[in-house]
Nucleic acid binder design. Sequence first.
DNA 1: AGGTAACCATACCGGTCTGTATACTCGCAG
DNA 2: CTGCGAGTATACAGACCGGTATGGTTACCT
Lengths: 206, 206
Amino acid sequence: MLQQLTTLDEATPGALRPVLQPLPKLTEAGARLLEAAAALFYERGVRAVGVDLIAETAGTTKKTLYDRFGSKDALVALYLLQRAHRWRQHLLTRLAEGDDESRVLGVFDALEAWMGAQRRGCAFVNAYAELGDSEEHPAVPVIRAEKAWMRALFDALTGDIALGAHVHLLYEGTIVVRTAGAGADTATHAREAVRIALAAGGSAPR
Amino acid sequence: MLQQLTTLDEATPGALRPVLQPLPKLTEAGARLLEAAAALFYERGVRAVGVDLIAETAGTTKKTLYDRFGSKDALVALYLLQRAHRWRQHLLTRLAEGDDESRVLGVFDALEAWMGAQRRGCAFVNAYAELGDSEEHPAVPVIRAEKAWMRALFDALTGDIALGAHVHLLYEGTIVVRTAGAGADTATHAREAVRIALAAGGSAPR
DNA sequence: AGGTAACCATACCGGTCTGTATACTCGCAG
DNA sequence: CTGCGAGTATACAGACCGGTATGGTTACCT
């Protein structure tokens, strides 16, 4: 089952295939640049962070940045690609060692653990919001692929398309409300909502 | 009931009170500026739009913009305030003339009608994503108030806090998935999810 | 007639943006 | 020992940013 999940991307349409491509190998300074960019992009937003700051934070120069990544847009896309990679690793690790009663609820546990230290919500939603109407930005397919992957995950975990869609809506809603909302009890309500959805879904969670 | 909803803000904590303040009266050029800013902000994002462009689009000057609004930040906050105002008006109008079977589902119908022509998702979530770590931005309380208002609306419509939270998660998730997701069947799945939540909530929708 | 608020037009400020260019050092493999 | 990839350092281009300053022109109100 988990083996199937880790290769879930290959079952998705061709447009989403690149997401599975292994992350490109980076030089030493390149890795520092991506790490610095990721932290800054997530915390302040991709438009609010300039390449000068990224290079300085990484202890290197703009020259190296452009030699390695070509453009800021490409760096943004790679940042999201790496983040998706890490989130899936975190998720699948948690699901592997989760208790058997419900892997679906395990996703929400993993989300809670993941977001515990991160106050800025979903990096993909944030990036999409900032890209505006530039639909041709290289990060857009990465964002869409991430959402499609999560939806496919819930479909697989619940074994039902409607139920998967329901839980996926709860998943995305949870992130939004936890971030921009006020409620501190979001996690509790989300878990209860998932239980209700699963109970009404007819099939027991696998 | 609807009378109660229209004054829902007054029941919220003091911090959210300013949201109820009537929209300030604008001069002629001021109104054009706000209208131009609203369209540009929503379509391209608040950071991507400069005050020069806003003034030019409105057929006026930066001088007038700063005379009327004081700062770009204040203009952003007012843009969101006006948008919240219009969304609530749209929503309450639709709920008033909705069929009796379920006002909760009516919210999702109103959302569908509202978002039909708008491709950029939730203006509040987008703005929050762009503001980054500047928590002192004047738009932040407007955003939080909007989410709190929607949550309070669902609480009132369902008559149950847990159920209101559940439906609110579905509501926020629907916007995200419809925008950044791929699924075209989001509306159908969302309605079905709401029906399940209501059926399991115990109390019939009012 | 006088005052005032609104508006238009234009120029400017310091700063920042992405991206490029030049010149140098270092380690290493052929 | 030579060539080259990688990295450092600095400077610069051209555009754009939010915000300010100056001045002139309506329209309305008392």
